[in-house]
Design a protein around this nucleic acid. Sequence first.
DNA 1: CATGGATGCTTGATGTGGTCAAGCAACTCG
DNA 2: CGAGTTGCTTGACCACATCAAGCATCCATG
Lengths: 146, 146
Amino acid sequence: MTATTPQPPTKAQLLELVAALGTAQWQDFAAAAGRHGLTSVQAKLLAQLKGPVPMRGLATLLVCDASNVTGIVDRLEARGLVRREPDPADRRVKNVVATDEGRETIHRVRAEMQATHTALDALDEDERTTLYGLLERLRPGMEHRA
Amino acid sequence: MTATTPQPPTKAQLLELVAALGTAQWQDFAAAAGRHGLTSVQAKLLAQLKGPVPMRGLATLLVCDASNVTGIVDRLEARGLVRREPDPADRRVKNVVATDEGRETIHRVRAEMQATHTALDALDEDERTTLYGLLERLRPGMEHRA
DNA sequence: CATGGATGCTTGATGTGGTCAAGCAACTCG
DNA sequence: CGAGTTGCTTGACCACATCAAGCATCCATG
């Protein structure tokens, strides 16, 4: 059942498969976030905070309106997972940083994505390298969206 | 450019890459749907309708509450993209079917996912076959989520 | 400088998507 | 027949998405 397949998959099939996987991983992420009382969007925002990020930057990263970020950060801040601090260089800007608890929480969420982790275990190192290489070639084209 | 890479990617890196690709594809899908006046969820529902599907089935497919489906189908029906028809075998059930316009619309949405299509063009047939095989091995583990 | 235009953030209005609890109609099975 | 189950809708409520408006601050140009 290995590659004796003379039939390469349709672009549509491949597309569908990528979509299914993306969805599955997203569900897994959302479920893990939910166990910690976070919505998936809140968790996604938290995941971006490796350092201080201005509100505007978060809007860009999340591909949404800036006014939207205000509310999400409000709720995260209310739970003490995130802090707004003034930017020393520009008083308009508020930089968002994860608190210790915030970092801890998002770390756990990632670790708890069991379905995704066990799925990846199905591949050995060579296969992962191959997959990584192929996926990386797909990425750039996805990004230059208008 | 075959496997002379001695460094296999971390699971975390691979995971992140899959997530990024899934997000990019989703954005592409949402944008295409938006151009036709549909939200991404509406388009996703429409994409499931290859035949008649009961409301309950849609809830399962979309992994959400049945009460949620009511509203989404309401809005699609108001635009004439979808119809509710009674199930001959069970009068409780309402089967949702896409209208001609609905099928046409979702078909166009798929076709307009330019970023995704051009990304896939970066791979030749062999690579697509390889990728498909690898991704398929990932899928089952993603699905048996509780 | 001074002032006009950009930029960063928040607020408010509005629509959609998500949950849950409750309700009704219809099926099923003892 | 009657009790329980299932399928769908409704209503209440919150999160998230957009847009338009507003305010503070920055910046560039005169």
